[in-house]
Design a protein around this nucleic acid. Structure first.
Lengths: 333, 333
DNA sequence: TTGAAAGCGCTAACAT
DNA sequence: ATGTTAGCGCTTTCAA
C-alpha cells in the first residue's frame, strides 16, 4: 500500500489528525511543537508522501478541477482557447479536464453529465448551436459555468465573447475608406450566432459608408464542404458582379480558400481587391500581406472565462453573473 | 444536499447497498425483484441521480482519468495529439486531464506530481529534453505511463514514435532520384532526439545516393529566434554553396520561414530547388505545392498511446512494455 | 500540544 | 431477495 496519512501516523506514533494538520501547513497555527512539525514534515518528504486529492475533495466537498467543453480540440481556435484556460487554471492550482463535443448536441449533453459526475468545480463551455436546453439545466441547478465565444440572449449567464460586430464594422469601413466601392461578404453557415454578428457589422458598415446592401454581394458557404462549395459560389459571385473591388471574410479559412481559388484561376488578387478578414493565419500573412484583419486574441478569452468562473466558485451562492465583450485589435492595412 | 445513494435509499425505504447494486447495473445479476429494480431505477432517474465519481474511485482504488503532459497546448502538433488521446480515452470511458509543461523540466516535474495526486490511472508524456529523471522515478514506482514522440534509449518504457529516420531517408532519396545533386539540410536545435533521427536519415540518404556529407550543407537554426535566425543562416548557406538544388526541412515551420525568405528576396524557389519537408501545413500546400513531405498523422500517435496505456492499466502488475514506431505516409511529388 | 471520532459517497465482502 | 458493515484517505469538530 502507498504511503498515507495513516501510515505516517503509525510510523511516528502520532494521530492521523496531527499529521494531517501539519502536512497541510497548519502546524504552527494550531500550536504544534516545532519538533513534531519538523519530524512529520521531514518524514513525509523522506517517504515521498503524496496527498490523495480524491479523498481530500470528497471530504471537503469540492475539487480543484475545471471542465472545458469545446467543439474540436485540434482546431487552432479552440486549442488556443484551451491554452488560455489551462494556464489561468494552473495559476490557481486548478487542473483542466478537456473534452470535445464535436459540435454534437447529444454528445455535449453526455459530456456535461460526465464532467459533473467527476465533480468539476465549474464548467467552461464553447456551445454548439443547439445547447440551449443543457445550459438552462445548468442554470437551474445553479452550477457555476461560463459560456465562451457565444451567449444565449434569453438566458442570464456568464459569458465571454469578442466584439464581433464592431470589429467587422471597422474592417469593412476601412475597405471603403481606402477607396473600395463594392465590398462582398464571404461568410459561412456554421456558428450562426457569431457569424450573424459579423454580418451585422458588415451591413452597418456598408450603409454607413453610403451604399446599399445587395443580397448578391453576400456569399454563404456551406461549412461541411467549404473547400468545394466556395469555388462554385465565387464563380457565381464574380460572374454576377464583376466589378467587386472589396472582400470581407468572416473567418480565416474562407479567406484561405478564396486565395487558393484566385491562385488556381490566375486572378491577380493583390491588385484587384482590397481584402479584410476576421482572424489571420500564417498562410494568409504570407499569401496576402495586404489583408487587413482583426487579431482575435483567443487565449485571452480562455483566461478571462477562468477568472469569472473562479470568482463564481468563490462567491458560492451570491455570485454576480458577468458578461464580457473582449475587444479585438484591428490591423488596418 | 444533492441526491445520493443514501438519500434515494431513505426515500425508498431500501438499503444503500441495494440501491448501489441496482444503479450500477448489477440488479438482475444479484437477483433483485424486477419490481425493486424498476422502482429504484425510475426514482433515480426522476430525481436526477448523478454518481459521485470521487467517492467511487476512492472506494474502488482507481479512477477513470488519464493525464496528458505536452510542451504546448496551442501548438497544432500537440493539440492534434491531444485530440487523438481524448477521443480514444473517451471511447473507454476515460477522461483526459491536459497540462502543459512549456518544455520546462521543473514544471513538468511538478505537473506529474499534481497528476499523481489527482490519482490519474496513467500518464502520457511528450517529454522535454531533460525528462530522464522524472521518467526514471515513474518507472521505479511502477506507475503506468507511455512516452510519445520520443523515447529514452537507456530506459525500458512504453513509447510511441514516428519512423523519423526512415521518412527522412525516403524524402531525401527522392530528391536525389528526381535529379538533385546537392541537397542541404535545414534543421533546428530543439527536440534534439527527434531532430537527430531526421538528420541521420538525411545523412544516410546523401551517402546512399553516392554523395558525401558536407557540414556546410547543414543549417541549424536556433529555435527561440528562428524567424530571424534562419535569414542570416540562409544568407550564409547560399553565398557559400550557391549551387544548392535541393532542400530538406526537418520540420514545417522551417519550411515556411524559408519560403517567406525566398519571397522576400524574390528568389524563384519553384524552379531553383527540389524541396521536401517533414510535416506539411496549409500555408506550405498553397505556397509550394511541389514540395514532397511525410504526412505525420499526429492523432494516431495519441490514440495509440492510449491503447497501450489502457492495456498496461488492465494488466496491472505483469504488463508488457511496448515500443511502437508509427510509419508516416510519404507524399513524393 | 495532541487525539478521537464522525463523516464525505460509494463499494463489496459477509450476512440473513 | 435484501441488509449490515467496514473501509477507501482525508478533514474537522470536539475533547483532553
Amino acid at each position: 500500500m502507498a504511503v498515507s496519512l495513516k501510515s505516517i501516523a503509525e510510523e511516528l506514533g502520532l494521530s492521523i489528525a496531527t499529521v494531517s494538520w501539519i502536512l497541510s501547513g497548519q502546524g504552527e497555527e494550531r500550536g504544534f511543537s516545532a519538533a513534531t512539525i519538523k519530524l512529520v514534515k521531514s518524514y513525509a518528504k523522506k517517504v515521498g508522501y503524496r496527498p490523495n486529492l480524491l479523498a481530500r475533495s470528497l471530504s471537503k466537498g469540492h475539487t480543484k478541477t475545471l471542465g472545458l467543453i469545446i467543439p474540436s480540440i485540434s482546431d487552432p481556435f479552440y486549442s488556443q482557447m484551451a491554452k488560455g484556460v489551462e494556464e489561468k487554471a494552473a495559476e490557481s492550482g486548478y487542473v483542466m479536464i478537456l473534452v470535445s463535443s464535436e459540435g454534437d448536441e447529444k454528445k455535449e449533453r453526455r459530456l456535461i453529465q460526465t464532467l459533473l459526475e467527476q465533480q468539476v468545480a465549474g464548467l467552461i463551455i464553447a456551445p454548439t448551436n443547439k445547447s440551449d436546453n443543457v445550459i438552462r439545466q445548468l442554470l437551474k441547478e445553479k452550477y457555476p459555468f461560463v459560456l465562451v465565444d457565444r451567449y444565449i440572449p434569453e438566458l442570464v449567464s456568464n459569458y465571454v465573447i469578442f466584439d464581433n460586430e464592431d470589429s467587422s464594422y471597422d474592417l469593412v469601413t476601412h475597405l471603403y475608406s481606402k477607396g473600395s466601392r463594392k465590398v462582398a461578404l464571404i461568410t459561412t453557415d456554421t456558428h450562426l450566432f457569431i457569424m450573424g454578428m459579423r454580418r451585422d457589422g458588415y451591413r452597418r458598415a456598408v450603409v454607413d459608408s453610403g451604399n446599399v446592401c445587395i443580397d448578391d454581394l453576400v456569399v454563404e458557404v456551406n461549412r461541411d464542404s467549404y473547400q468545394e462549395d466556395i469555388i462554385s459560389k465565387l464563380d457565381v459571385l464574380f460572374s454576377r458582379e464583376p466589378d467587386i473591388d472589396g472582400l470581407f471574410f468572416t473567418t480565416h479559412y474562407l479567406a484561405e480558400e478564396a486565395i487558393r481559388y484566385f491562385i488556381t484561376k490566375g486572378i491577380d488578387y493583390h491588385n484587384r481587391f482590397r481584402m479584410a478578414s476576421m482572424h489571420i493565419t500564417k498562410a494568409l500573412e504570407m499569401l496576402a500581406p495586404e489583408m487587413s484583419y482583426a487579431d482575435i486574441h483567443v487565449e485571452r478569452i480562455g483566461g478571462m472565462s477562468v477568472e469569472i468562473l473562479l470568482r463564481n466558485i468563490q462567491e458560492k451562492d451570491n455570485f454576480v453573473t458577468e458578461g464580457v465583450i473582449l475587444s479585438n485589435k484591428r490591423v488596418l492595412i
